[in-house]
């Protein structure tokens, strides 16, 4: 039960959101889908004097633009899955959204921007955004700025967003003809992800893989192409070497310690690459 009441705002536009945030001077929390924030408030892990609910602010939707795709912060996983254009516009987010833990109830409410802002090391969205080279569009009363995803995630549950800012949208480079690959390892359906890997080959063919849940923030590595196939032990050893070098401080929680994550991160990476190269990233991960 939330023991401390708060002032609730549900502005009907971005201007309203940023002005409430400016006024609250750091005492506000921003409510996206609520799937993580509200349980946290219920259990006393987050307390706030002001809650700014984005649900009426009109920040939802997927809009293709010139060489990029703008995904509104309050776009839910279900929105992504229901959008016929998603396989072409946001293929990685679509594969990721289909596997989000917690059932349709969570996919109906959970938002891409909310997950990014919450920056739970165990969440899937941050690493996907890093893999895509997304830019995070942050709005405040003093204007709008964009931050590279890699710079946005600054630590466990910490981002570059200032308290007076709201994450308004994610700007993704358009992926024309690129086939992505995604792998998620978790203990069971109930479990947080233990290691995720999102492979987005660059235009130059470089295999960029962002690893999620293995460290406090997503890790981005670039791996050589498997010229002798993804089963080639030498290539697997290379992937392990590259990933090992990146995983300097593995994330650890009650489900899996850092050592386990370090062990399986290269496996996830190699599998995501295999999917990107072999199946076009369509396959659901276990």
């Amino acid at each position: 039960m939330i023991t401390k009441d708060f002032t609730y705002h549900a502005p009907t536009g971005l201007d309203g959101v940023v002005s409430v945030l400016a006024e609250a001077a750091g005492d506000a929390v921003v409510l996206g889908g609520g799937t993580m924030l509200i349980p946290d408030m219920t259990h006393g892990r987050t307390r706030a004097d002001v809650v700014v609910d984005l649900s009426r602010a009109g920040l939802s939707g997927i809009a293709p633009g010139d060489g990029e795709v703008v995904v509104g912060a309050t776009t839910t996983y279900a929105d992504v899955l229901a959008d016929d254009r998603a396989p072409a516009l946001v293929p990685l987010l679509r594969v990721m959204a289909g596997g989000v833990t917690g059932g349709p109830q969570i996919r109906n409410k959970g938002t891409v921007g909310g997950s990014a802002s919450y920056a739970n090391p165990s969440s899937e969205v941050p690493a996907c955004l890093v893999a895509l080279g997304a830019r995070m569009r942050l709005a405040s009363a003093s204007g709008t700025r964009e931050v590279e995803a890699l710079d946005f995630f600054t630590g466990a549950f910490a981002t570059a967003r200032r308290p007076d800012e709201v994450l308004a949208a994610l700007v993704l480079p358009a992926l024309t003809g690129t086939s992505v690959g995604y792998t998620k390892l978790k203990h069971a359906e109930s479990s947080w992800p233990i290691a995720t890997a999102a492979c987005v080959p660059g235009p130059d063919g470089a295999l960029r893989v962002a690893l999620g849940a293995v460290a406090a923030t997503p890790l981005l590595v670039t791996v050589d192409r498997p010229d002798a196939g993804v089963a080639d032990p030498a290539w697997r050893a290379h992937v392990r070497e590259v990933v090992d070098a990146a995983v300097t401080e593995p994330w650890s929680d009650v489900l899996a310690d850092g050592e386990y994550r370090r062990r399986v991160a290269p496996v996830a990476a190699a599998r995501s690459i295999a999917r990107a190269l072999e199946t076009g990233g369509e396959e659901e991960t276990p």
């Binding site: 349980p39 609910d53 109906n108």
Partner: peptide, 13 residues
């Protein structure tokens, strides 16, 4: 029409 977990929604919303 959409399923939600009503413990993770504020009544005001």
């Amino acid at each position: 029409g959409a399923s939600v977990k009503s413990c993770s929604v504020f009544a005001v919303s």
